[in-house]
Computed example of a mutant assay.
Amino acid sequence: MDRLSLRSNLEKYRTPFEEEASFINDFIDLTFDEKAFVRERLDGHFTGSAWIVNKTRTHALLTHHRKLDRWLQLGGHADGNENLLEVAMSEAMEESGLSSLRIVDSGIFDIDRHVIPQKGEVPEHFHYDVRFLIEAEINEPLVISEESMDLAWIPFDAIEDLTGTNSSILRMLEKTSKSEILL
């Protein structure tokens, strides 16, 4: 999925969630910017994330992000790679150590635009996060990367308590619960 196919997929992307629908056009517009896939674009840039679930759809793998001090899905900067599915898979492997990762659907699962606070000389900016649904074996050992304080399979019914009012996490959880994707 390069820049052109990302744009095409975003143009076709539909969601019943008003918040998510409200920024689809911003994502499409960003695909026209030559620097959209590099973190040096300080107004905001693309990132790729993996919403990792177990095969029976009872748990999601979350990381306690070291810099943000919040529980989140795994993912990261594109660093010039326009294939955000590759970015999501690479970040998921690096941040979890899992080898059983399997793409459930190569289409966009979710998108979210969120503010990243200023850190050192890097000013506050937006991440335009494109998320993909990934499956993994829940019993495979996890390896915590230096980007995380912790990494854990969280039961679906405990995610809201752990993540608070993070609307994008709760939206992905709801999408997974309502998903018609075969187990």
Score class of each variant (00 low, 15 high):
1 M>D: 11
4 L>C: 14
5 S>F: 13
5 S>Y: 10
6 L>Q: 11
9 N>E: 15
11 E>Q: 14
16 P>L: 07
22 S>D: 05
25 N>P: 02
34 E>H: 11
35 K>A: 09
36 A>N: 06
36 A>I: 04
41 R>W: 04
42 L>D: 02
45 H>S: 04
46 F>C: 01
49 S>Q: 01
50 A>E: 05
55 K>T: 09
55 K>Q: 10
57 R>N: 12
57 R>K: 15
58 T>A: 03
59 H>M: 08
60 A>S: 09
62 L>R: 05
63 T>I: 14
68 L>D: 07
72 L>D: 08
74 L>D: 11
77 H>W: 09
78 A>W: 10
78 A>K: 08
89 M>H: 00
92 A>F: 01
92 A>C: 05
94 E>M: 12
94 E>K: 12
95 E>N: 10
96 S>M: 07
98 L>E: 01
100 S>P: 08
104 V>T: 07
106 S>I: 08
108 I>Q: 01
113 R>L: 13
115 V>I: 14
120 G>W: 14
120 G>Q: 14
120 G>E: 14
121 E>S: 14
121 E>H: 13
124 E>S: 14
127 H>I: 08
127 H>F: 14
130 V>W: 15
133 L>K: 13
134 I>F: 10
135 E>Q: 09
136 A>K: 03
143 V>G: 11
144 I>G: 13
144 I>N: 14
147 E>M: 04
152 A>Y: 00
156 F>R: 07
161 D>I: 05
163 T>V: 15
164 G>E: 02
169 I>R: 01
171 R>D: 08
178 K>S: 14
